[in-house]
């Protein structure tokens, strides 16, 4: 291919190439190394041999791995649905003409600015001390124990995850809603279209690309959930809240299964990629239909 006419300003290369190199050194290279080591018996140091697909076969025989996958999917599906429904509602509220609009926007965006670990530790305290105290004072037995120490620990984590993830998704939906022309709504109102119909026939189809982005990013992010779980439960009680990422970390670094968990990480990577591609295909097809 030949670029005719205009000369390309070298400044553009200066903008893109250094980052590409950094990205390659600090992201792509370690990733490729990880893939490589997943075919060896490397412990993280010392000598190693090629073992072929042994690690991959081992991963699937470990019952804890299967259990973690089931939990991870349950968590990711619940979080994706709740986050997207709630953030769309929030975005529509914030997009309408209300008082304190900007203040509210910044309040909802605040959680995004805080580190997940810090949020995890703060909520750890809330669940361990404040909520049980509240429950005891008002005699509500369901609230008087630390939820993170029960069967329902994952709900505690879900609440925190949703609270934090709302910010970013709301922002994207808000950007989407602002691209919708107000004249369309005015025209619809003249035709006497109801609020619900207006949403499903006008708003939702017009922000479909933003819905696609949010869905793909949410699922990807929640399938790889790690920080909040390490901060809040460390995967417990028992193994109840161990996601795949947490399992990879615990077994790979603390359990001396570096190569095996590299294989597990490759499997997780493939799972995330495949799900993302399927999502993109399905949702983009839907976008085309709607447009």
């Amino acid at each position: 291919m030949k670029i005719t006419g205009k000369k390309i300003n070298p400044a553009f290369y200066l903008m893109t190439i250094p980052i590409a190199i950094l990205f390659f050194i600090f992201h792509t290279l370690p990733f490729l190394k990880g893939v490589f080591y997943s075919f060896t018996d490397w412990q993280g140091y010392g000598n190693w041999n090629f073992v072929g697909l042994k690690n991959y076969l081992y991963v699937f025989t470990d019952p804890d791995v299967t259990g973690s996958y089931i939990f991870t999917f349950k968590f990711a599906i619940a979080a994706t649905i709740l986050v997207n429904v709630l953030s769309l509602l929030l975005a529509m509220g914030l997009n309408s003409k209300i008082k304190f609009q900007n203040t509210l926007k910044s309040i909802y965006f605040l959680p995004y600015m805080l580190g997940t670990l810090i949020i995890g530790f703060v909520f750890n305290f809330i669940f361990a001390n404040l909520v049980p105290q509240f429950g005891k004072t008002f005699g509500i037995s369901a609230l008087s124990t630390n939820i993170l120490g029960t069967d329902h620990a994952w709900i505690g984590i879900l609440i925190v995850t949703i609270w934090q993830s709302l910010a970013f998704n709301t922002l994207i939906y808000l950007a989407g809603l602002q691209t919708v022309d107000h004249e369309i709504y005015e025209a619809a109102e003249m035709d006497g279209v109801g609020t619900i119909k207006k949403f499903f026939k006008i708003t939702f189809p017009l922000i479909a690309p933003f819905f696609t982005i949010n869905m793909v990013l949410s699922v990807k992010g929640f399938l790889m959930a790690f920080d909040q779980i390490m901060a809040m439960t460390g995967g417990g009680p028992g193994n109840l809240t161990t996601t795949i990422s947490v399992l990879i970390y615990k077994r790979g670094f603390q359990g001396g299964q570096f190569a095996v968990q590299s294989a597990n990480a490759v499997v997780l990577f493939l799972v995330v990629v495949i799900i993302s591609i399927i999502q993109l295909r399905v949702l983009e097809k839907r976008e085309e239909k709607l447009n």
């Binding site: 361990a128 049980p132 124990t145 630390n146 939820i147 120490g149 029960t150 009680p237």
Partner: peptide, 8 residues
């Protein structure tokens, strides 16, 4: 104690 599973 009660809630020993939730005590840090």
């Amino acid at each position: 104690q009660p809630d020993f599973m939730g005590t840090t």
